[in-house]
Design a protein around this nucleic acid. Structure first.
Lengths: 133, 133
DNA sequence: CCGCATCCACATGGATACTG
DNA sequence: CAGTATCCATGTGGATGCGG
């Protein structure tokens, strides 16, 4: 929606369906993608291990997220046709590059979480009429 | 993420409600936060301007997101009690620091979007049975 | 073991109408 | 202008059961 031909940010619309940032955020902005990318790390992890590492994820969402990442060329899926089927996942080279900016965000989170939490509590104490969930 | 207090990656649970990354992602992972932070930039922007800059956002979501950011101490809200009320928003110092990791992510998006899109199309051509929404 | 299919609860967010 | 309040459509994601 809202597609402007000019690249102006202030005049034009920064919110466009084809905006790279928007596209990527729609991908990694979900509940699990970032955690899964983190959990994959450098190695090759099988499905059940992954499920244990990313505690709280349902197998539906794990599968779904992995499929999306695979489609995006960020995750490699390898099936070992053994007796009990073994499937391993690993980040592709492109996938590994995603870890950097993600780590930057993680850093920020760790550094600023205390400040953010303090702000929230101070704000909640100040304005009792808006208990913001 | 995936970092427990003990530093263990494989044993502990990376998914915990108090995980800093999880907390932050829950905040900025929504549809508008990142765009609004970007639209605020360095200056002071009034509500209606903001709404125009972040085209596509409803006033409900704009208000809601700004309130959350304000509560987090990332956005400063200033009311000018003039005839037609004028309200201006700007990033706090903490809020401005968020722009760096966000920019890193944006950079990544721009650099890798082509690759990701290509992967998607290749994947969709290869496997017609799973059109992955 | 890995994953798909189905049903369903809930949160997100858009449209609309009204206030100060 | 800058919200607040309400209703409602939709998407996300959890639970469960089945299949290869």
């Amino acid at each position: 929606m809202v597609t402007g031909q000019d690249g102006s940010v202030l005049r034009g619309s920064p919110y466009r369906a084809d905006c790279p940032t928007r596209r990527i955020l729609d991908r990694i902005g979900d509940r699990w993608t970032v955690l899964i990318v983190g959990a994959l790390g450098d190695g090759s992890v099988r499905f059940s291990d992954l499920r244990r590492r990313v505690e709280g994820v349902s197998q539906k969402m794990l599968t779904q997220t992995l499929r999306a990442l695979e489609r995006d060329g960020l995750v490699q899926r390898t099936v070992h046709p053994e007796v009990p089927v073994r499937v391993e996942y690993s980040l592709t080279e492109a996938g590994r590059t995603l870890r950097e900016p993600l780590r930057a965000l993680e850093e920020w989170s760790i550094v600023h979480l205390a400040h953010v939490s303090a702000s929230q509590q101070a704000h909640d104490r100040t304005d009792r009429s808006q208990p913001v969930p």
